[in-house]
Amino acid sequence: MSDAILEAKDLRRDYEVRRGFFGGTGIVKALASVSFTLRAGKTLAVVGESGSGKSTLGRLVTMIEEPSGGSLFIDGIDLATATPQERKRLRKEVQIIFQNPYGSLNPRQTIGAALEEPLIVNTDLSGKDRVSEARAMLARVGLRPEHYNRYPHMFSGGQRQRIAIARALMTRPRILVLDEPVSALDVSIRAQVLNLLDVLQQEFELAYLFISHDLSVVKHIADEVMVIYLGSAVELGASATIFAEPRHPYTRALLSATPVADPAAKKERIILKGELPSPFAPPSGCSFHPRCPLVIPRCKEAFPPTEIIEGREVACYRARDAVAVPAG
C-alpha cells in the first residue's frame, strides 16, 4: 500500500530503573519489538492488558520519547536521522489524545488560548486568523462559541475530551494517537465521542493509532488490530479477521473475555492463569508461555517468528494447529 504515513520497524524501548539505593540498575523492556504501518484514513487498534507497553508505543510515535532500537518512519523520513527542521515539521503531523480529560487541559488556560497555542508556536498567523481558526475548530467538534473564553473546570468529561480533540487537530496532523480516549468517559458519552472521531477521520483523512483495552470499542472503530503482550506484538491483522478467527492463544483468551449482549449465546471462556510476568525478568522464549494453555516445550526456548497465516501476522508456534483451546 502506498499511502502509508507511518511505519514502525522492530520498535523497542527499554527503561533503566534503579532498584533501591544499592541495587544497581535493572532494565525494563517496556516494548520489545513491534512493527506496524499506519495508513491515511485508517485506524490501527493496539490492545493488550495493563503494563503490556501500549502507552509506551504511543509515547514513541508522538516523539515524546526516543526509541531504544528499531526505526520509525513518518512520511518516509527516518526519525533517527531527521534534521531538526524535519523533526519540527513531523512533530506537527502526530498529535495525541490522552485518557484522562481532567489532566490533559491546562487549568489556567482558557479553551481559546489552549486552541490557539499550537498555532502561536507553529505558524505565523495573525491574532485574528488564529481566533477564527480556533473558533471554527471549536464548532467542528460540537462545542458552542461561548465556550471559547471559559476555563477547563467548567466542562464535563465528554466536553473536555472534545476540547482535547480540537486542540490536537489545530496543527492539522495526519496521525492521531488516541491513548484510551473514551475509557474515562461515561458510557452514554462514549458513543458520541467515538462518532465524532469517526467523522473527523473521514474529513481530515486521519490515521488513528487507537490504544485500548476495551475490545467492544475496538471492534466498533478499528480497521486493523494489533495485540501486544509484554511488549511484543503477538497478532496483527484486519479487525474482521482477528475478531472472527483469532489464532494466537492470547488473542483467543482476550476475545473470550469480552462480554456479549446476547444471553442465548454460548461461549467458551478461556481463563488465563497467573499474572502478567515482571518486565524485569521476562520469561525465556515466548513471553506468553507460562500462562499459555497450548504450551509445548519449544515455546520455552525461543520467541516464535512472525508468520503470515490467513491474512494476519501471528507469532506463535501453534498458530497453524487448529487446536481447541482447553477451557479453564
Partner: peptide, 22 residues
C-alpha cells in the same frame, strides 16, 4: 508529570514558553 504539559510539548511548545506560560 501531567498530561497537559506533555500535550503542549507534542504541540511543539518550546522549553521557555513551556516553563513560563504552561
Amino acid at each position: 508529570g501531567k498530561d497537559y504539559v506533555t500535550a503542549a510539548k507534542v504541540a511543539g511548545v518550546a522549553s521557555l514558553r513551556l516553563m513560563l506560560r504552561t
